[in-house]
C-alpha cells in the first residue's frame, strides 16, 4: 500500500508540468496505445501471412487441377464410357475428343470418352463400405462408451481401433485381396470387395469419432433418464443417440468422404471395367483407380483422362464434405442446459 502511494507521488513530481490530471492521462494513453497499435498491426500481419501461406498449397492444387482437367469436365465426360487406350496419340491433338477422332475408328471406340463407370464405381464401393462400417462402427462406439467404459475388453478394442487407424490403407487392400478376392478368383474382384476394403479403413475412424461424440453427451442426461425409471439402454436409444446424432452423422460422413478418395485398398480388389457396372459383383473401377492408371500410362490421352478423373474426384469429395457440414449445422442441438 505504502509502496504504491510513494510511487504515485514520485511520478506526480516527475510530471510536474503535466499536473493537470486530464493532460497526464492523455499523454499516458497515447504512449501505450501507440506501442500497442504497432504490435497489434505486426501480429495481425503475421497471422494474415500464415493463413495465406497455409492456403497456397490448397489453391495451387485447385489451380493445377482446373488448368489441366477443367476443360474436360462436362456432362458427357462425367457419363461417358472409359476409352481403352493402348498406343500413343498423335502429338498434334490438343483435345481429347480430337485425339480420339484422329486415333480411333469412331464406330468401335466409345462415342464420347469419359469417366462415367468410375463415378458409379466410386459411389457404389464407397456406399457399400459405408453400409458395412457405419452401423458396425456406431454400435461399437455405443458399446465402448455406454457399456465397456474403462473395462478390459473396451480398452483392448479401443487400442486395436487406434492401431487400425494407423495401418496403411494398402494393407487393408492386401487383407481383403487374400481374405476375399483370392478365394473367388477373378470373379472376386468387385465393387463389393472394394467396399470391404474401404469398410476396414473406415471402421476404426467411425468407432473413435462416434465414441467421442457419445462421450460429449453429458452424464446428467443419462442420470435424468434413470431417475425417471428408464433402463440404461432406454436412455441410450431415447436420449444419448438423438443428442449425439449430428456429431455421429458428421463423423461418419467425413470418414466416407475420405474413403471415397482412397486408391490403394481399391487397386487389387475392384477389378476392371470400361462400361458402367451398377452391380456390386463383377469388375468395376473408381476415379482414384482411373487417376492411378492414367497417370502411369505413357499415353498423353490417358494422362488427360487422369486429370479429368482427378478434378471429378475432388468435386465429389467436396460435395460429400459440404453435405456433412450441412447436415451437422442443420441438426446441431445444444447439449448443455
Amino acid at each position: 500500500m505504502t509502496a504504491v502511494i510513494g510511487d504515485g507521488g514520485r511520478s506526480v513530481v516527475g510530471l510536474a508540468p503535466l499536473l493537470d490530471p486530464a493532460a497526464r492521462t492523455d499523454v499516458r494513453v497515447r504512449t501505450i496505445s501507440a506501442r500497442r497499435r504497432r504490435s497489434d498491426r505486426a501480429v495481425t500481419l503475421a497471422l494474415w501471412a500464415a493463413a495465406g501461406i497455409a492456403v497456397v498449397p490448397l489453391v495451387s492444387v485447385v489451380v493445377v487441377l482446373v488448368a489441366k482437367g477443367g476443360h474436360l469436365l462436362d456432362g458427357r465426360f462425367l457419363t461417358g464410357d472409359i476409352p481403352l487406350l493402348t498406343g500413343r496419340a498423335p502429338a498434334a491433338c490438343r483435345s481429347i475428343s480430337e485425339a480420339f477422332r484422329a486415333k480411333y475408328d469412331l464406330d468401335c471406340a466409345p462415342p464420347v470418352p469419359g469417366v462415367g463407370p468410375a463415378v458409379v464405381g466410386t459411389l457404389l464401393s464407397t456406399a457399400i463400405g459405408a453400409l458395412l462400417a457405419v452401423p458396425l462402427g456406431v454400435l461399437g462406439a455405443i458399446y465402448l462408451n455406454e457399456i465397456g467404459g474403462s473395462g478390459r475388453i473396451a480398452r483392448v478394442i479401443r487400442f486395436s481401433a487406434d492401431v487400425m487407424t494407423g495401418v496403411p490403407s494398402i494393407v487393408m487392400g492386401m487383407f481383403v485381396y487374400t481374405a476375399w478376392v483370392v478365394r473367388f478368383g477373378t470373379a472376386g474382384r468387385s465393387a463389393f470387395a472394394a467396399g470391404l476394403a474401404l469398410a476396414c479403413l473406415m471402421l476404426p475412424v467411425v468407432v473413435r469419432t462416434s465414441e467421442e461424440m457419445l462421450c460429449l453427451v453429458p452424464d446428467h442426461l443419462r442420470h435424468a433418464n434413470q431417475a425417471l425409471g428408464g433402463r440404461r439402454w432406454q436412455g441410450v436409444v431415447r436420449v444419448v443417440i438423438p443428442a449425439a446424432l449430428p456429431g455421429l452423422t458428421t463423423g461418419a460422413m467425413l470418414a466416407v468422404a475420405r474413403a471415397a478418395g482412397e486408391t490403394a485398398p481399391v487397386l487389387f480388389t475392384i477389378g476392371v471395367t470400361l462400361r458402367t457396372n451398377v452391380s456390386p459383383s463383377g469388375g468395376n473401377t473408381t476415379l482414384a483407380q482411373q487417376i492411378y492408371d492414367g497417370a502411369r500410362s505413357g499415353d498423353p490421352l490417358a494422362n488427360q483422362m487422369a486429370w479429368g478423373a482427378a478434378i471429378t474426384l475432388v468435386l465429389l469429395v467436396f460435395l460429400l464434405t459440404a453435405l456433412a457440414r450441412l447436415v451437422s449445422s442443420r441438426f446441431s442441438t445444444r447439449l448443455d442446459g
Partner: peptide
C-alpha cells in the same frame, strides 16, 4: 428401475433433455 419410477428425483442443476 421400479424404485426410481415410484421415488422421483430432481437434481441440483436443471437437466432437461435436448428435446
Amino acid at each position: 428401475v421400479e424404485v426410481r419410477r415410484r421415488i422421483g428425483m430432481v437434481f441440483q442443476k436443471p437437466n432437461p433433455f435436448p428435446k
